[in-house]
Design a binder for these strands. Structure first.
Length: 732
DNA sequence: GAGCACTGC
């Protein structure tokens, strides 16, 4: 029997296990050849294709077999054959992300019977990741291991990029992407196995997938689910699936990291951190240092102080390169952590970005003060706040691990061992209990989940959070009295936007400005496009001046529109962005989002239109359209106090200092309210009180309106409106 | 007078 030596695998040609022997013994290769012996346990694709491996591929094969998961391969396959769900704990370096999907795939192919093969049933393993970069880089590595072309047998799917094909049998995708797929394929029929990787991170998408899969498993006995976690929270996952899922633990493969605790708890963790870093630099051997702090200002200050202290030591110590790292740092400065600094010790002072998202080579010493800044949603206020809170034990372990990637390391915890044991939570609260659930609810409804309140959440959100989200969707017209998705709600759920923004976009054709609203919505869904060098940098003033040139007097939404237009007029030129302190990546991303949103709009026959630019209604229409979606995010300037109060909730808020408004309009619509040092409304636009009566009368009816100055003003407006109507009636 | 980190056909 001749062997077909084709590069790419046609899924329909997969040969079932029963025929394997015949295929596996081509006369021209010979069963005794060492190459072939290796093939028997190598890439399943090559085994079935009978293609000889490249020289390089042998090294890859040998290397991957030293990964700890290989010690448990038979156990894992056995457990998966006997059970529908498997929970797997694999520490960093165990090889779970690259190897387990291959094991699962292999098992399913071997299990395929000849009759299955005749039906040419498509089998696909989906492996979810919380981050896009992970989906891309892991799939690349696995494609290399399997000696196939990325995008063929092994692929990835992330927003804006689908690198999978009909041939794909192993796909890496983001958890959010799988959730989106479930909206059109609620039983996830395109998958024969789903692996939830990094499940311990407990993103909202992962949590919803948990609940969804638990339901789907009942109607799809053929589906296999593997839950992979780096921590022992896995036992909770096991319990969630009825306790029947076996749990397999695989050790990691990191170098030893020696842990030090302080004898007493520290009053000033930043000061303690600085002293520790300087101490390490003075007394410890070679190796770079990573210090975790909570935010931009803290990091920039600490960098200055560390530099000063090391400077004071003069020639007594070696040179150090001190590098700040946080997500909003201008890209060119962020790049510095990856540049080698020969002859000096790198001291990286970073936010949590270095805990999971970025991996820096060469770190030997980690300094961990034990705090993180995270977003917390307060349903009572309907605002998010950023709070500095103690990290979890799991997070502390993750930080520690950053010291042992390339060599044995040391981790200095600036809290007591007792505090670690007693005070730190074992896991960070899952995102779902810390979030506004508006978008999540739309998605869940679209997935066919009827009862959002009694859904089988692994950790249920606070009742008030559920109530707030339901109320908002009702006011937006996305849900009816019975809690069913309306036609509008159906369309809203299709947009990857928060419900208010989705509604703004959907109604924008009625205000004759969908082209412009599309650009604004796209700009609102990407990271801040304004680049601002840190305090003390000479170019900071130039950045502020550049921003002022784009400012629109009536507000920040219109300023964003100006920026988008200027970006397009300048042919998306990166150097134009650089000169104008605009984040190029954010702009390209906004352009991508815009195209995606436009495609969804055309699917629902939502008209693309603009008011003539010369018309005095050009900006008026845009402002009205924004209000039509965001009428619940309105604040009124109190004459008596000079403060803004949010409508209905009567919370005191302040215009965010980043606003381009140079006056205080009586009424403003805002995109978000964030509590930091104070309550700030961010991305704010001037509107007219009269518009509230026209655009959202159901929300601004007077019976359910709390007493406040805004109510009195609105009452006056209603009366005036009444008189005018009276007059025009009389005239007729 | 000021921003932890992710994500979405």
């Amino acid at each position: 029997m001749a062997i077909e030596r084709k590069r790419k695998l046609d899924v329909s040609s997969i040969v079932p296990a029963s025929k394997l022997a015949k295929v596996a013994a081509p006369p021209n290769v010979g069963a005794a050849s060492p190459m072939f012996a290796d093939q028997a346990s190598g890439s399943i694709f090559n085994r079935w294709n009978g293609k000889p491996y490249s020289q390089n591929f042998h090294h890859i094969l040998d290397k991957r077999k030293t990964l700890p998961v290989w010690q448990h391969k038979e156990e894992i396959l056995d457990a998966l054959k006997k059970n529908q769900v498997l929970v797997l704990v694999g520490e960093t370096g165990s090889g779970k992300t690259t190897q387990i999907p291959q094991f699962v795939l292999e098992m399913m192919m071997v299990e395929t019977t000849p009759s299955d093969d005749k039906r040419r049933k498509k089998m696909m393993v989906g492996c979810t990741q919380p981050r896009r970069v992970a989906a891309m880089s892991v799939s690349q590595r696995v494609a290399e291991e399997m000696d196939v072309t990325l995008g063929e047998e092994v692929g990835y799917t992330i927003r804006f990029e689908d690198k999978s094909s009909p041939n794909t049998v192993l796909n890496y995708l983001t958890d959010g992407m799988l959730l989106r797929e479930a909206m059109t394929d609620p039983l996830l029929k395109s998958y024969s196995a789903i692996i939830l990787d990094e499940a311990h991170e407990r993103t909202v998408a992962t949590d919803i997938l948990f609940g969804l899969l638990k339901q789907v498993l009942r109607s799809r006995p053929d589906l296999k689910v593997v839950v992979m976690s780096a921590t022992l929270e896995a036992e909770k996952f096991q319990g969630y699936f009825g306790g029947e899922a076996p749990l397999i633990k695989v050790p990691g493969r990191l170098h030893d990291v020696e842990v030090f605790y302080t004898a007493e708890s520290q009053r000033d963790y930043v000061e303690a951190a600085i002293q520790t870093v300087v101490q390490v630099h003075m007394c410890e051997g070679p190796g770079d240092v990573l210090l975790f702090l909570t935010g931009e200002e803290e990091i920039e200050d600490a960098c200055r102080n560390i530099a000063k202290e090391i400077g004071n030591l003069g020639g007594q110590v070696g040179p150090a390169t001190i590098i700040p790292l946080y997500s909003t740092l201008p890209p060119a400065l962020q790049q510095k952590v990856f540049e080698p600094a020969p002859g000096t010790r790198k001291i990286v002072v970073s936010t949590n970005i270095a805990e999971t998202s970025l991996t820096i080579d060469g770190i030997v010493y980690v300094v961990d003060p034990g705090f993180v800044k995270r977003k917390v949603y307060d349903p009572r206020v309907g605002a998010e706040s950023l709070q500095v809170t103690p990290i979890s034990k799991a997070s502390a372990e993750q930080r520690k691990g950053r010291a042992g990637r390339t060599a044995p390391g040391k981790c200095y915890r600036l809290y007591t061992e007792k505090s670690f044991d007693k005070d730190l939570q074992s896991q960070t609260d899952p995102e779902i209990v810390r979030s506004n659930l508006g978008t999540t609810f739309l998605t869940m409804k679209k997935l066919g989940i009827d009862d959002l309140v009694h859904f089988d959440y692994m950790d249920p959100p606070a009742p008030k959070t559920l109530e707030r989200a339901l109320e908002m969707l009702y006011y937006l017209g996305a849900m009816d009295d019975e809690g069913n998705l309306t036609k509008l709600g159906q369309i809203m759920s299709e947009f990857p936007l928060d419900p208010q923004t989705a509604k703004t976009l959907i109604v924008s054709p009625e205000f004759n400005c969908s082209n412009e609203i599309l650009s604004i919505c796209a700009m609102l869904s990407v990271p801040n496009c304004f680049v601002r060098p840190p305090k003390g940098e000479a170019r900071r003033k130039a950045a502020d001046e550049a921003k002022a040139r784009f400012a629109h007097i009536e507000g920040d939404h219109l300023t964003l529109l100006n920026i988008y237009h200027a970006f397009k007029l300048n042919n998306e030129d990166p150097s134009w962005c650089y000169e104008n302190f605009i984040n190029y990546k954010a702009m390209k991303s906004a352009d991508n989002v815009r195209q995606q949103l436009a495609r969804i709009m055309s699917r629902y026959n939502l008209r693309m239109c603009s008011t003539e630019f010369g018309s005095r209604d050009y900006y008026v229409n845009i402002r009205k359209a924004i209000l039509a979606g965001c009428f619940m995010q309105v604040a009124h300037l109190e004459r008596s106090t000079g403060h803004y109060l949010t409508v209905k909730d009567n919370q005191v808020v302040h215009l965010h200092p980043s606003t381009c408004l140079d006056h205080n309009p009586q009424w403003v619509v805002y995109n978000e309210c964030v509590v930091t040092s104070r309550s700030f409304i961010r991305t704010t636009t001037d509107i007219r009180g009269e518009w509230l009566l026209d655009i959202a009368p159901h929300f601004y009816e007077m019976e359910n309106f709390p007493e406040c100055e805004a109510k009195r003003v609105l009452k006056t407006l209603y009366k005036k409106r009444g008189r005018e109507m009276e007059k025009s009636k009389n005239r007729r």
